[in-house]
Amino acid sequence: MTAPAQQMPAPRPLVYAGAEDRYFDYCLQPYDPLRDPRGKLRSESLLWNSLDVARAAPSLDAALGAVQRTAGRDMTVVGVKHQGGRIWWELYFYDRLKEDPAVRAASIIDAVAPWFHVVPRPRETVPYFMFSFDVHPDTADGGRVDVVNLYLPYYEVQGGRSYKLSADRLEMDNVYRFLHPKTEIREIVHDVRQSVFVDFTRVPLSRILLPELIDCNRICVAKKRFADAVYYSGIDVGQLRFFLRTLCYPEPIVAFVEAQRAALDHLRFDVGIDYVMLPDGSLSTTKSSYYCTL
């Protein structure tokens, strides 16, 4: 007698573009769709697909729905994070001019309270223009979020610093800078090479600045506590497919993008790669991510 096959839950439904949809990159900067979006998918479809793949509890859908209602449609940036086959999500909320109380940390934290407890409460006098926190497949089943990230801007230079806020400590986590991939390439190369994690006498620059992704709208170079990172913003669906394949994302995620390629080709995407050099001189991706808006 054989055991019954495990029932796979039905995939979450596709979400199609609407007339009022806005198109934002992961900095919540607007962009023009590459083509007529009618009949095509909203970028949040990538999120729902990743929830399927990560077998996230349905409660997370409900929590994300509450986030969307609170922040407003298209107003939440979601990073789908990948590390060694593990998938989770980071939710980012922008309010550069502190003009919308609905996307202040307190409001979002209250909105998700029925599903999970966000422990840190940022002090609203901190001049953050964005905050974020991670959720995992089971977070919305009464879990807790112990860290909130706060992002502070530079003066004029596009970029910022992020800090990790937990119940009992606040620590600097990351500095990053956005640059134009063509006209500011010297600055990009300089910033990438300024590394304590990679020995560039052993690692070619082309392993980090990938030719397939460098045709993008902006590159972000980040210096983190335990890794360096490069982000490519404004890539097209073909480049997203390359990224997912190259970074060894779970096959159902790659397959989804390939199957829906024509329904995603009006969108731009953003991706990031965290990396360090291993003792043998090889480059190791410690984390990667792709982004959509909810």
Binding site: Y23, R35, D36, D215, D265
Partner: peptide, 23 residues
């Protein structure tokens, strides 16, 4: 043909804007 141009298959070659048809 770069990323700031038309990307991927089935690009609408029309010079007119087409990203927000309702608007």
């Amino acid at each position: 043909g770069g990323v700031d141009g038309k990307a991927d298959e089935t690009a609408d070659e029309s010079a007119a804007p087409h990203g927000h048809p309702a608007w």
